[in-house]
Write a protein that binds this DNA or RNA. Structure first.
Lengths: 196, 196
DNA sequence: CGAATGTCAGTCAGTACTGACAGTCATTCA
DNA sequence: TGAATGACTGTCAGTACTGACTGACATTCG
């Protein structure tokens, strides 16, 4: 009774699906296991979602975050390179982390689940645009030297995308390096590279 | 006769397995499909490899490259930051590309195929060590300013790891940006950030 | 009561893997 | 030359198991 009254059965199933599929892949997890993880019967899973695929789609629709970036670029900038980059970077990693399971799934199982990748990849494209514009403006103001704003924005994003991927599965390739110092130092590095 | 005499049946099976599993995942591909892609019967697959898993293991053992880096760092450096970084980067992307299918598989299906990730992740660790030492030496020589060589090496590698991941599946998140200009510009950027 | 859930038995389509048998082709030997 | 041999492959039927999904009926709980 305790476990089933905590939250709706649907939510428990959605979270269980996200959790298990992110770890073992869509084909690596059975509907039985998902139901068990949620503390419910397999039958209930099908009563709620009809099929395994619809379950995963529902999970994506419900637990996908992404809008902070737009707001950030329109409201929170101070037009000083270091603090702005730091804010962007922290926000980036925060969003990526909140969506980590869905990102894992879409990297892994797109191919069999057409369209899932697109949902997670709309936003990074937006970020490239925002950051390119930011560098262009900063360059116009004479605050940085950036002859190629798009490529610089891309480089910056790739740096952090790489770092995110590196600890995506928590069994990192480079386990000795923590995220926070990396963020700090990478921003400083970038600021030095772009100083006029 | 033509298709079966090109190369040994084993090789054709290994390559077909690598190709299909990289695209659709270990559980997403059947032994029938692999055999068909190789132009052989399923029976032949089992006669050669005994099981699906052994087939994939054999493919990893046969088609895994990695030694250029060690040689590069012991023989080919000129101790000028830009040319050295450029050489390292080009070599890095070359190795990663040659191993792309295996990297895809180990990112995707480790979890169900224990140990596969380790095979592809031994070498990046080595690279971090090499590059850290390089920065330390360069700093000692007064040729760069690097207070934190390991973090700088990590940052550099993450930049290119991210870029590699971005076009790993050839359906890139950022399709407007090509690899080669990125390599050039990222090295220049880094060189500027580290100049004394 | 009524809505949500559990249980259980079962269907149906895969899927890794096996065994029996036959065909092909090149080499070898009488 | 021609028969015999051996390595390799294909075909086909079949086993054992798994996994998504269903239907009928009972149970719990507000």
């Amino acid at each position: 009774m305790d476990s089933s009254s905590k939250q709706g059965s649907s939510d428990r199933l959605l979270l269980a699906a996200l959790h298990l599929i992110a770890e073992r892949g869509y084909n690596g997890v059975t509907t039985q296991e998902i139901a068990a993880e949620a503390g419910l019967s397999e039958k209930t899973l099908f009563r709620h979602f009809g099929s395994k695929q619809k379950l995963l789609e529902a999970a994506f629709d419900k637990y996908h975050y992404a809008d902070e970036m737009k707001k950030l670029f329109s409201e929170k900038l101070v037009w000083e390179l270091e603090p702005d980059l730091l804010l962007v970077t922290e926000t980036y990693h925060e969003i990526m982390n909140r969506n980590r399971k869905m990102i894992q799934i879409s990297l892994r199982d797109d191919g069999q689940l057409p369209g899932f990748r697109q949902r997670t990849h709309k936003h990074p494209l937006q970020l490239l645009e925002f950051l390119t514009n930011y560098f262009t403006h900063m360059s116009d103001k004479g605050k940085i030297a950036s002859a190629n704003p798009e490529l610089h924005a891309f480089t910056f994003i790739m740096m952090h995308f790489g770092a995110f991927m590196n600890d995506l599965d928590r069994r990192q390739t480079y386990p000795t390096i923590a995220l926070e110092p990396f963020i700090q130092e990478s921003v400083k590095l970038f600021a030095r590279a772009l100083r006029p």
